[in-house]
């Protein structure tokens, strides 16, 4: 059992390594992608400078906290797309029968698929995340916590991408739905939760769990809080189990692109 886990981790790490190597084949493009992504993320600062010029707090957040919010949000999407890019393309794998070659391997199918591609521009997101943490005031504890929350958040975001992608086992052409769902996670993650009230707020802690990926971490980073720290980790774990359950449930419906469509 232990040996099996060790071998699985070994293979997944190798797969991630090769995916990154593929992205680095063209050094110029690789660096350009990273640079452009940092610039892209940074452009939003202008928006926040203007807003904070009007008012000193937005949704209970100071400017420094908004920096943290952005840092975590960017870092999360960076990590998930850098390591598990294909979680966001799972629909394509399912509808076009691309799971076949992974299914004949004696390893975890889901891990093999999501780790089989990387996105170099995502590295720009990760760098940008760290830059903002440094700008908002650096301490070692903050650095470590930030890194941890970047990982838990990335796992949750990847989980959701997988769940949305797995819908393709049941629903034809659900890829647009998955794209939209993933987009929602990004949209909400970059605004302070204090501006949302009532049911909108409740939604952000449930269906679109931006609360757990971004809002709670910002609070813990601002003033440490054991129970929130605990909740973030537990939810990450539970959601991951649920994700594997959904994917494997769907896999029984996998049709390997055989006869999906016919027109009269």
């Amino acid at each position: 059992m232990l040996m099996e886990v060790k071998n699985q981790i070994n293979v997944t790490l190798k797969s991630i390594k090769y995916s990154i190597m593929k992205e680095m084949l063209n050094k110029g493009t690789f660096l350009m992608n990273i640079f452009f992504m940092i610039l892209n993320d940074a452009s939003f600062i202008i928006q926040w400078i203007i807003i904070y010029n009007i008012k000193e707090d937005v949704g209970g957040y100071t400017f420094n906290q908004v920096l943290l919010l952005w840092g975590i949000a960017a870092g999360i999407f960076g990590v998930s797309r850098f390591l598990f890019k294909n979680a966001f393309h799972l629909s394509d794998f399912i509808t076009n029968g691309k799971l076949d070659s992974y299914l004949v391997q004696p390893k975890n199918v889901l891990l093999a698929v999501i780790s089989s591609s990387s996105d170099s521009s995502a590295l720009g997101d990760i760098f940008y995340g760290y830059i903002l943490v440094f700008l908002s005031g650096f301490t070692v504890i903050k650095f470590l916590l930030f890194t941890l929350f970047m990982i838990t958040g990335a796992i949750i975001v990847t989980d959701i991408a997988i769940i949305l992608g797995s819908l393709s086992f049941w629903i034809n052409r659900s890829d647009i739905l998955a794209d939209t769902g993933n987009g929602l996670m990004t949209n909400f993650a970059t605004y302070p939760d204090g501006i949302f009230k009532g049911s909108a707020r409740a939604m952000l802690y449930s269906i679109i769990p931006v609360g757990v990926t971004v809002y709670m971490p910002v609070q813990v980073l601002t003033s440490f809080n054991y129970s929130m720290f605990f909740i973030i980790n537990v939810i990450t774990l539970i959601l991951t189990f649920f994700t594997f359950f959904i994917f494997y449930k769907g896999l029984r419906k996998y049709s390997s692109s055989n006869l999906m469509f016919s027109k009269i």
């Binding site: 797969s15 593929k22 084949l25 391997q105």
Partner: peptide, 22 residues
């Protein structure tokens, strides 16, 4: 359907498959 990593050499691919089969 391709099972190999296109950007790697056959040698590296075989090594990867070796790892897959423990």
């Amino acid at each position: 359907k391709e099972q190999l990593w296109m950007h790697l050499t056959p040698y590296d691919n075989f090594k990867f498959f070796g790892a897959i089969y423990d």
